[in-house]
Simulated assay, not measured.
Amino acid sequence: MTDREVLSECPPSAKLVYKVLEHDGELTQQELAEETMLSPRTVRHALSDLDEEGLIDQRVYLADARQKIYSLQNADAEAEVDAEAAAI
């Protein structure tokens, strides 16, 4: 199943969070709440859904170890594909 197929089964809030991560790159939960204008609780639930589906990565935010930073799981692979396409 592709990421797009998995994402189609997710709730709208998870789709919005995914698209913001796709556009903006790595963000904290607070930054996601600000960008999406969703409540922190809704963002937390959306991140949980995306994590369960294996669509995002999370790691400790080095600037503030109390927070996590989120990114798309395949962001590095997508960047490589984009770079290769631009080189052609």
Rank of each mutant, 00 (worst) to 15 (best):
Y61D: 00
D64W: 00
D3K: 00
C10W: 06
D57P: 07
V20N: 13
A86E: 07
R59G: 05
R66M: 10
E35Q: 13
A86K: 09
A14C: 07
R66W: 09
Q29G: 15
E35L: 06
A46C: 03
V43R: 05
K68E: 13
A33D: 02
H45L: 15
R4F: 04
V43L: 05
S13Q: 15
A85L: 14
E52I: 08
L32T: 00
H45Y: 15
L55D: 07
Q58R: 07
L32G: 00
P11R: 14
L21P: 08
Q30R: 14
L50T: 02
Y61V: 01
D49W: 03
A33L: 01
I56K: 03
C10P: 05
G54P: 08
A86P: 01
G54L: 06
E31C: 03
L16M: 14
H23F: 11
L7I: 02
K19S: 14
E35A: 06
K68A: 13
D51E: 15
L38F: 12
R41T: 09
D51N: 14
R66Y: 09
D24R: 15
I88R: 15
D57M: 09
T2S: 00
D76W: 13
M37D: 10
R66V: 09
T2A: 01
R41H: 11
L32R: 02
C10S: 11
T42M: 11
E9V: 12
M1K: 01
A65G: 11
Y70L: 10
S39L: 14
P40F: 11
D24W: 12
A87R: 14
E52W: 10
E31P: 04
L21A: 05
D64H: 02
T42Q: 11
L38A: 00
P12D: 12
I56F: 07
S48A: 09
Y61T: 00
